[in-house]
Each structure stands twice: as structure tokens, then as C-alpha cells.
Amino acid sequence: MSSPGASPPVLACTGLGRTLPADPPVTLVRDVDLAIQPGKFTAIVGPSGCGKSSLLYLLGLIDRPTAGQLLLDGRDLTPLSGDERAAIRLEHFGFVFQFHFLLPEFNALENVALPIRRLGRLHGAAVEARARELLGEVGLAGKELKSPDKLSGGERQRVAIARALANDPRLILGDEPTGNLDSVNSARVVDLFVALAHQQGRAVVCVTHDMGIAERADVRVEMLDGRVVAVKAQ
């Protein structure tokens, strides 16, 4: 497997597989070896139904693999309990989905503050200051107190990105993060992702079928029928 760059991978998997216990069993992901580098924007591409989202959920500890190993900084995550996996997601992973999934009862600032409060390292005014800073970073200064339904689609997705960044995660995982955005907003989000990788040294992994995004990625992982068929550095 060709791994571009010299730095050790933040997240790596060997022989990773996911089979649904149906009759007959359905294999979503099979035998994937992959190393995710910090400071790189990795795109996972492939035809729909090829298992790219399933792979992302396995990498993001949202789903459990039925085969193989997943290592975070060389530590095997496979045997961890649900609560331990949740704790790792909280601290090290930030997710952005095709849908913003903001809690409708909370305004932008409160949505961003949720993971910070759950982690519990900051308190009171520090939580709010951190959330404001993040919203400023994604260009939403001044819209902190708006509720999600008062924001445009692009703004909501940027709130979701700010929320993903809340606990300063080392990995940002995106599942078609621009799937619901127009080209202008889509470009802004991709710019943000590239900056998060290149300027802040985070590992960014995006599942996309948008070739425009795939073009801008540092690493392109191509999938077919649940397998990784090519990993291209570009």
C-alpha cells in the first residue's frame, strides 16, 4: 500500500471488514487496509453502494467492524466498549454529514457548545468563548444566536463543521458534506476542509461522489464493491 508522506498515520486499519448478519450475509466492506495521515485531505470515492460511507462509519467508530483491526496512534480500538468508543469520538473525531443534523431546539452557539460541554474540560464563559471562536473561524461571526431554521443551508453546514471542530479533534470525517450545497457553498466547505488539513495539520477524510472535491484531495481512495481498489496520492 502506498502511503504518501512520511509522518506516521493517525488512524490505520488492516483487513477491516463489515458484514451484516442477514440471510445470506451482506458484506458492506471487506479487507480494507488504509492509513490516514495527519495534515492530508483524503477523499474516498466510488460508485454509490460501493461501501464508502460504511467504511467511513467504521473508521469513525460509529459502526463496529466484523473483521480486521483499527488502530488510533497504533492503539487497537477493536476491543473497546461502546462507552469507550464514544469517549474517543468525543475527543478525537469530528463528523460532518450530508445533513447538518443540528439540534433544532438549540441556537448555533449552543449547538457548537454541546460537545465542548460534554467533554467537560471548559466551563461557563470559556465554553461560550470557544464556541464563538469556532463560529468565527467558519465565517459565522454575528450569527451565533440564530436558531438553525433561521440559517441558510450553507450556514448550517458551517455550523456543523464548527461543531465537528469543537473539541479540537485530530480527525475530521465527512460523509458527503457538500451533498446538499450549491456550488458556491460547496467550494467554501471544501476550502475549509483543505485548510483544516494543510494549515492545522488535521487528518481530513471525506466520502464524496463529487469529482471536483476528489480533485482537490491529497489522497484519493477508490472503492468498488466494498474493497479499496486504488489509493492515489495527487
Partner: peptide, 8 residues
């Protein structure tokens, strides 16, 4: 979403 965020 709360689960994915890291709520148990």
C-alpha cells in the same frame, strides 16, 4: 448525531 458526537 449526539451519539456520533460522543454522547454515550
Amino acid at each position: 448525531i449526539l451519539r456520533s458526537m460522543g454522547f454515550s
